[in-house]
Simulated scan of single mutants.
Amino acid sequence: MVTLRRATAADVPVLRTVCALAYRDNPLMRWVLPDVATRTDACAAWLGPALERYVAHARADVAVAGGAVVAVAAWRPPGADLTGGEVPVLPSPAGVLRALVGADRAAEVLTALARSAPLAPATPGAYLNYLAVHPDHQGRGVGAALLDHGLATLRAPGTGTPWLATTDPRNLPFYARRGCTTAGTVELAPGGPTMTVLHAV
């Protein structure tokens, strides 16, 4: 049986691990972190600071099975400040990326990712940055339960349209079944992954 709850700070180490294992073969991660031998750890290092900020300053829901956290959905509601306030907490996600791949490569990656911003809804609602399910629990409806839970909570009149982006084409039918429509695509690099932006209308 799977139960859903809000994430806490104590969950962050597990969230890093779940995301790293779920995303290690994602097209974006293969492009940003091409070294297979170090990608899983590098992915956990890069995403860890962002997950901490989502838990503390935005919204992160987790799925629990057998007493263990097996999936996470991290949402950024409109107006959420993920910088850490007046005294930002280190490391920053961008800072970790620079440490992993170098300043020039990090700037290239972040600039490419930012090109999806014009595809946001006219009135953007909550943005789903991470939806990750541990590989051992994929294909069991866990991700769907988390997504449906988040949309039921965040998709309300007057709150804007929830949205998300993915570089894995295998995810598109999953999101389409949950009422998400494609707003457009962005090629992150020549020969690199294509990011598809979806609106949860």
Rank of each mutant, 00 (worst) to 15 (best):
M1Q: 15
M1N: 15
T3L: 06
T8I: 01
A9R: 15
P13L: 02
L15G: 10
C19G: 02
C19Q: 14
L21T: 11
Y23S: 12
N26Y: 10
N26Q: 09
N26I: 00
P27R: 11
R30A: 01
P34L: 00
D35Q: 07
V36Y: 09
A37H: 09
A37T: 07
A37E: 14
A37N: 08
T38M: 04
A42H: 15
A44M: 05
L51D: 13
E52H: 09
R53Y: 15
V55E: 15
H57E: 15
H57I: 01
D61T: 04
V62W: 14
A63F: 12
G66Q: 14
P77M: 05
G79S: 12
L82G: 12
E86C: 05
L90W: 14
P91V: 00
P91I: 00
S92H: 13
P93R: 13
V96H: 11
V96E: 12
R98G: 06
R98I: 00
R98A: 14
A99I: 00
A99P: 01
V101H: 09
V101E: 12
G102Q: 01
D104G: 03
D104W: 04
A106P: 08
A107I: 02
A107P: 06
E108R: 14
E108L: 01
E108I: 01
L110M: 08
T111Y: 03
T111P: 00
L113P: 05
A114V: 00
A117C: 02
P118V: 02
P124R: 05
A126Y: 11
L128F: 04
N129M: 05
N129Q: 10
A132D: 06
A132T: 02
V133Q: 04
R140Y: 08
R140A: 13
G141C: 08
G141I: 02
G141W: 10
V142G: 14
A144W: 07
A144S: 15
A144H: 11
A145G: 12
L147E: 15
G150V: 02
L151P: 00
A152Y: 10
R155M: 01
R155S: 09
A156T: 12
G158Y: 05
T159Q: 13
T161S: 02
T161Q: 06
T161F: 04
T166Q: 05
T166K: 09
T167Y: 07
T167C: 12
P173C: 04
Y175G: 01
C180D: 15
C180Y: 15
T182H: 09
A183V: 02
G184Y: 02
T185Y: 08
E187D: 14
T194R: 10
T194Q: 05
M195I: 01
V197R: 07
V197D: 07
V197I: 02
A200T: 06
